[in-house]
């Protein structure tokens, strides 16, 4: 049976999103397709799958990403959905724990990819706020300010996490 749920997650809460998907799988609902804020589930054995999210360097349908996704398939990791450059991946829980990264270096690289996505949006919105304010565009600039500050919050969250990983990396590689 198909179950469709709608839910919103901020980019900086993508690990909460993972947690939520894994919780659903533990309850017997396996994610099989995604849309904008839309999650399609099919019934599965309780805890049959483990889920992870990754922001790819390129669009999931690009040749580079295809090569990577084929590589993941070899390791029993399947792509069930995507949203822009984000992919939703799953693996059978019977095959053991599911991590995409096993050292700090690659975790940091993934965070950098996310930061490169978020920082330009933040700067663009804060910049448009300043320009709009000078041209007295009414309430519109404040919309930019709100989006800009929200994204800035996300950037700070990711920077804190990156810093934590960097400190760990100074004494241990994984």
């Amino acid at each position: 049976m198909r179950t469709v749920l709608h839910k919103w997650f901020w980019v900086w809460d993508y690990d909460k999103e993972e947690k939520w998907l894994n919780q659903k799988a533990a309850e017997g609902l396996a994610l099989v397709a995604t849309g904008i804020c839309r999650y399609e589930f099919e019934d599965c054995e309780r805890g049959e799958y483990l889920y992870r999210l990754e922001l790819l360097e390129n669009h999931p349908d690009s040749p580079e990403s295809r090569k990577y996704l084929e590589f993941l398939e070899e390791a029993g990791i399947e792509r069930v959905g995507s949203y822009m450059r984000w992919v939703y991946l799953r693996k059978k829980a019977a095959d053991g724990p599911f991590d995409l990264f096993s050292d700090y270096e690659s975790r940091i690289q993934h965070l950098n990819r996310i930061l490169w996505l978020l920082v330009p949006i933040t700067l663009l919105n804060l910049g448009m706020f300043l320009i709009g304010l000078n041209q007295s565009l009414g309430w519109v600039p404040f919309l930019n300010l709100a989006v800009g500050l929200l994204c800035l919050y996300g950037v700070i969250r990711f920077l804190i996490r990156k810093n934590k990983y960097k400190k760990e990396r100074e004494i241990s590689e994984n």
Binding site: Y68, F71, L72, I77, G96, L100, F101, S102, E105, S106
Partner: peptide
């Protein structure tokens, strides 16, 4: 040592 797929690919 459990090499994760993403780390291994890189």
């Amino acid at each position: 040592v459990k090499l994760a797929a993403g780390t291994l690919y890189g």
